[in-house]
Design a protein around this nucleic acid. Structure first.
Length: 583
RNA sequence: GGUCCUGUGGAGCAGCGUGGAGUGCUCGCCGCCCUGUCAAGGCGGAGGUCGCGGGUUCAAAUCCCGUCAGGACCGCCA
């Protein structure tokens, strides 16, 4: 090393020693005869003092320096309690400018921040700031903690291919042309799902991987085209074994990185309860505000919007907005626009007068006196509250609208405790959901095992059948999901039948997995954690971009490298992109 | 694919509603001064295709249309 110490490590006890430091000019304060430079390296910042030094005046922000000098106590009264190194300073004897810096395109400054595009374009400068740098270090620590838990349990870390064939996740694949097989293409894996199941057949028993996954879909704040899962699979286990291991990992992460004790066991709620109480399969349980099912209460109503839904076997429910009666007409109308932006027809409401508790609003006059009289008690509302209604033939559609309203209300009313960590498992998810064309599609993936109660009869009522599938939810974010897998050929065959997948199609798409399952496959199950989101939660970041070293923009571009780029005609020909499909 | 927000010297913003000279703020940059600062300070200075294209108008950063880029949400994504 060309230095002897780390800048941020110097303390009063180091006074009197001669040190050599290397780092960047974070800030300079030039007083003419004396110049102070805050020298920053990865460990932090220390003040260095240059006296009567012509070279000092030429220093600029982010010059890279090598300095040698004596550590000494700062003069009495000049200590800086804001800095860990604030008791000392380094009086420079020798200054070497290792490299200079152009005028910076963005401020390398913890106090100021730039726009996303500039930050990503110059990500290497953005990462010199303590916040972004800290996020990457936190992620590294998270990786280490998870690995240490898993290795304690004898897990084997295995790398699986990234050039592979399409996996059954259902998203669009990223494709890579195969030069040696013109006209054929690799797919980048959407997850290592099939490989980890093959590793169970291989007898590894306990596998994990911090796996890069690729899905060619539109972005969100919590979505990137390439993202990372902590992928885990175990043989000879039940759902409870996977959950217990997961809780051990999560508890270790939150204990070490957030100073938070995750109370085990983490509460479990069934998928149907989650939908009924929270209108979401990833409920934010930092606040209450549960939904009320009013389908039976309102049965026989004359109000056609509700009666239509109820008579068709649908659902009418409510969510209460505490204090919502004080909203202006404009604000209440705003909820209609909010609902319409979500694809709903609207969001009916009743406000309860703050003084009298009397129900008012457009819907109120459509309900009977008796229904209005008991409404507040039925939904748990008080005078001064607003009650929002959603009605639909499709129960889930109405529940999801109310669930979204619930989250929106909590935000507006200030019910969310930002310092809370509310974990829960959502279990017993449905195996299938309608595919919109009269058939069924797998809610999880087609290898998810039915629960014991449904194992013999899931095809009799596919819409009601439940699976050994479980999602781990934290503060309304799904941070992990997994399932027990099917290991019996006959069960797998019956699932494919429900999904309308013929033997030929199955053989074509994942025949290699089915073939493997002919050779004594062990019962197995696993889970995959959304590693980017978990790291974002642990660092308090709003977007997973903050915990990815070189993220892409919403348009899938990397402003730093300029990727993706056009290819030359030569590359095009060589890659065989235009070779027609043969065979 | 849809809805919405944003785009103004190197960075972050204001200006736009109600059109009237590229107007303003903070930081940075350049020069000079300055020996105890720590977001140092003082004086002076440079730096602009108001994202791009078109339209309306005597006149457009400002109004209209289109387009590009960034972001949030819906669809989509197990």
């Amino acid at each position: 090393m060309i230095r002897t110490h780390q800048a941020g490590s110097l303390r009063a006890a180091d006074a009197g020693t001669t040190v050599t430091l290397a780092g960047w000019v974070a800030r300079r304060r030039d007083h003419g005869g004396v110049t102070f430079v805050d020298l920053r390296d990865a460990s932090g910042v220390v003040q260095v003092v240059l006296r009567e030094s012509p070279a000092a005046h030429a220093l600029r922000n982010e010059f890279c320096l090598l300095v040698t000098g004596d550590v000494r106590h700062r003069p009495a009264g000049n200590e800086n309690p804001e800095l860990p190194t604030g008791e000392v300073e380094v009086v420079v004897d020798e200054l070497v400018v290792l490299s200079e810096s152009d005028t910076l395109p963005l401020p390398v400054d913890d106090e100021q921040t730039a726009g996303d595009e500039v930050r990503l374009r110059y990500r290497y400068l953005d990462l010199r700031r303590s916040g972004p740098a800290q996020a990457l270090r936190m992620r590294s620590a998270a990786n280490r903690i998870a690995r240490s838990v898993l290795h304690r349990h004898d897990f084997v870390e295995v790398e699986t291919p990234t050039l592979t064939r399409s996996t059954p996740e259902g998203a669009r694949d990223f494709l890579v042309p195969a030069r040696l097989q013109p006209g054929s293409w690799y797919a980048l894996p959407q997850s290592p799902q099939l490989f980890k199941q093959l590793l169970m057949v291989a007898g590894l028993e306990r596998y994990y991987q911090l796996a890069r996954c690729y899905r060619d879909e539109d972005f969100r704040a919590d979505r990137q085209p390439e993202f990372t899962q902590l992928d885990i699979e175990l043989s000879f286990v039940t759902q409870d074994d996977v959950i217990a291991l997961s809780e051990e990992i999560i508890a270790a992460l939150w204990r070490e990185l957030a100073g938070h004790q995750v109370v085990a066991p983490v509460p479990r709620i069934t998928w149907h309860d989650a939908m009924g109480r929270y209108g979401s399969d990833k409920p934010d349980r930092r606040f209450g505000l549960e939904l009320t099912d009013l389908t039976d209460y309102l049965r026989g109503t004359e109000f056609r919007v509700f009666a239509g839904a109820i008579d068709a076997g649908g659902y009418v429910g409510t969510v209460v907005m505490p204090g919502g009666a004080s909203q202006t007409r404009k604000e209440l109308d705003g909820w209609q626009d909010w609902a319409k932006a979500r694809g709903a027809r609207g969001l009916a409401y009743v406000v309860l007068d703050a003084e009298t508790g009397q129900a008012r609003g457009p819907v109120a006059k459509n309900l009977s006196a008796g229904q209005l009289a008991g409404l507040a008690d039925a939904v748990g509302a008080k005078p001064g509250d607003a009650v929002f209604f959603a009605a639909a033939t499709d129960r889930r559609e109405a529940q999801e609208l109310l669930g979204a309203a619930r989250v929106e209300i909590a935000g507006r009313v200030g019910l969310v405790d930002e310092s809370a960590w509310a974990f829960c498992w959502v279990t017993d998810a449905p195996m299938f959901e309608p595919d919109g064309q009269g058939g069924w599609t797998a809610v999880h993936h087609p290898f998810t095992a039915p629960t014991d109660e449904w194992a013999d009869r899931f095809e009799q009522a596919p819409g009601d059948a439940l699976a050994y599938a479980y999602d781990l939810v934290c503060n309304g974010h799904e941070i992990g999901g997994g399932s027990v897998r099917i290991h019996r050929a006959d069960v797998q065959r019956r699932v494919f039948d429900v999904l309308g997948i013929s033997a030929e199609q199955a053989a074509d798409k994942f025949g290699f997995l089915l073939e493997a399952f002919r050779f004594g496959p062990p019962p197995h199950g696993g889970i995959a954690f959304g590693w980017d989101r978990i790291c974002a939660l642990l660092t308090g970041a709003d977007s997973i971009r903050e915990v990815i070293a070189f993220p892409k923009t919403r348009g899938g571009l990397d402003p730093l490298t300029g990727a993706p780029t056009p290819i030359s005609p030569e590359q095009r020909a060589e890659a065989g992109v235009d070779t027609p499909q043969t065979g």
